[in-house]
């Protein structure tokens, strides 16, 4: 685990594998996360990216920001195509190449969940990273099953009716060797998580909450704060499950105490997509957050004592 100070030191030492000049929206935290993920994984990495914002922000042909082999892939095929790359390398005796699927929440939680589940069940040696910006942002902000309850999107103009799907827990139920959540807006967290994943054989899943200024409707200058508030409010919990044992990450641990959490309303009200929330709806969200924090804390405690 490296610190912020160490991260700053290695920034110029580790090769730059996502080059400047990408065609992302200004200040996109997904690009930030991919840059640091690649710094952790290193040159010997291949990226498979199903339909998502990344297909556009890597650059329009013939320009490209990735300095590693990068495949644009069909929407449902992020995990299955990566499994093929892994098998191809194995069959040819090529070793020590990291295979990373870099997918959005639509490609993971909705259309790609079957292929993801299959690749994990088959014990594919790869990393699947889902940068979760909580909706179909590339196509202009439609709801996905990772969109939070009450969110206004172009396909939920009066607000979504159900909570977001807990993809990391679904994945964790596969008895996967490594699953972790992290924050796109926290490069230290991203770097450490990918370093940890890289060292483990078998399927690894990383769920990255990725604040999206245009989709969530907030000032892009607040992206980093937005990520931090998601954690401080307990809305997004940083945890990892290594070889079946769940552990809450240090950065989230103190916010498992309700007294230390900021009200979830403070996190939500900074985002235009929640601007019409009523008090009852905010209470409902608070209740959802509190229950989730309680549940995961209890589980972490139980598993720590196993």
């Amino acid at each position: 685990m490296i610190t912020t100070k160490e991260l700053l030191k290695i920034e110029s030492v580790k090769p730059e594998l996502f080059l400047a000049g990408s065609s992302s929206c200004a200040g996109c935290p997904s690009v930030l996360a991919l840059r640091w993920a690649l710094k952790a994984l290193g040159k010997k990495t291949v990226v498979v990216s199903p339909a998502c914002c990344a297909n556009v922000y890597i650059g329009l042909w013939p320009k490209a920001s990735p300095a590693v082999p990068y495949i644009n892939m069909a929407f449902a095929a992020g995990a299955s195509a990566a499994a093929g790359v892994v098998a191809g390398y194995e069959s040819l005796g090529k070793k020590d190449i990291n295979v990373l699927t870099w997918a959005g929440d639509g490609g993971t939680v909705d259309i790609g969940i079957q292929a993801l589940s299959g690749a994990i069940e088959r014990n594919t040696n790869f990393i699947y990273a889902c940068y979760d910006n909580e909706g179909y942002m590339n196509t202009g902000t439609q709801r996905s099953s990772s969109t939070p309850k009450y969110t206004v999107t172009t396909t939920t103009p009066t607000g979504k009716h159900m909570h977001k799907k807990d993809i990391s827990q679904i994945v964790a139920a596969h008895d996967i060797p490594y699953v972790a959540t992290c924050l796109a807006t926290d490069p230290v967290d991203v770097y450490n998580t990918f370093m940890e994943a890289k060292a483990i054989h078998g399927p690894k899943f990383i769920h990255i909450l990725t604040p999206c200024a245009p989709g969530w409707r907030f000032d892009v200058a607040n992206s980093i704060d937005m990520g931090a508030m998601a954690v401080k409010s307990g809305f997004f919990i940083l945890w990892k499950q290594v070889n079946g044992r769940l552990e809450i990450k240090k950065k989230s641990l103190r916010y498992m105490d309700k007294q230390k959490r900021i009200p979830v309303g403070d996190y939500l009200k900074g985002q235009g997509r929640f601007s019409k929330l009523t008090k009852e709806q905010i209470d409902d969200m608070q209740n959802w957050v509190d229950k989730r924090c309680e549940k995961i804390s209890a589980r972490a405690e139980y598993e720590a004592n196993l």
Partner: peptide, 15 residues
Amino acid sequence: HSVMAALVGSSMTGA
């Protein structure tokens, strides 16, 4: 769907 996606991946490695 995954069959052919997997073969896209494997064939891209030259297998």
